[in-house]
């Protein structure tokens, strides 16, 4: 049934003359190159956050400040970065305190800083480049399906952030011991995993399946060299 249904679509594609009349505007091409450059920059900066010696961190901090300013000018929300920073700070510092005691807290703070510096370029990329353009650029080096998965994952991030917040709030209202006050006690951490992380994973699986079906119904994977909307 699917094969017959797709026949008309294939004829339709032939009729439109794919390949020969692919006249993409220079502005669109430029946008793709800018996205490619952005991807390389993000990869470089995020990797650097983990690998460069401490003495070079101020330079990286400066780069990330520029990215934050640029991201904010593109309507990015600072609240995301602040929340990630605070969550990282609480979890990492608590772990350092529990495992190494008070003496290693400065190392813990440095680890938090490096994680934040690795996160900011990714945030900036999601704000400044469209997911579909990132997907297009990724097809230059990856199979189409992999590029789609990465682009779709980036698109789903804001949705999953909202889901995470709402599930957390629902469970807090149901009396779960997962408010910041309760989470000071590590014995309550499994409750966070049970009643927030597991339901979130279930939602993620359901959503992934629905997106996959929606993509397949619109001929995703039928052509090895798809064209791109600009």
């Amino acid at each position: 049934m699917q094969v017959k249904g797709r026949r008309k679509a294939t004829e339709y594609r032939r009729a439109t003359g794919s390949g020969n009349r692919c006249l993409e505007g220079s502005a669109a091409q430029k946008s793709s190159f800018v996205t490619a450059a952005s991807l390389i920059l993000v990869l470089f900066l995020s990797s650097a956050a983990f690998f460069i010696p401490d003495r070079y961190l101020p330079g990286l901090i400066l780069c990330d400040i520029f990215l934050v300013i640029h991201g904010l000018s593109r309507r990015g929300k600072l609240g995301v970065i602040v929340r990630v920073f605070l969550v990282q700070l609480i979890i990492t510092m608590s772990l350092y305190y529990l495992i190494h005691g008070q003496g290693q807290l400065a190392q813990g703070a440095l680890a938090v800083l490096r994680i934040l510096l690795a996160f900011i370029p990714g945030w900036w990329l999601s704000v400044s480049c469209r997911a579909e353009r990132i997907g297009e650029v990724l097809t230059w080096i990856l199979p189409v399906k992999w590029a789609f998965v990465i682009a779709a994952s980036i698109r789903l991030l804001p949705f999953m952030t909202v889901e995470l917040r709402e599930i957390y709030q629902i469970q807090c209202l149901r009396g779960a011991r997962i408010t910041p006050k309760f989470l000071r006690d590590p014995r309550n951490w499994p409750e966070l995993i049970n009643c927030v992380i597991f339901p979130l994973l279930i939602q993620l699986l359901k959503l992934s399946r629905q997106v996959a079906v929606a993509a397949q119904l619109r001929y995703f994977g039928k052509n090895k060299k798809p064209t791109h909307w600009r």
């Binding site: 594609r13 439109t16 390949g19 064209t227």
Partner: peptide
């Protein structure tokens, strides 16, 4: 999205 997958050129999209 469907047109991309059917390899329809951008100028016709």
């Amino acid at each position: 999205f469907a047109l991309e997958n059917l390899a329809v050129p951008y100028d016709l999209m």
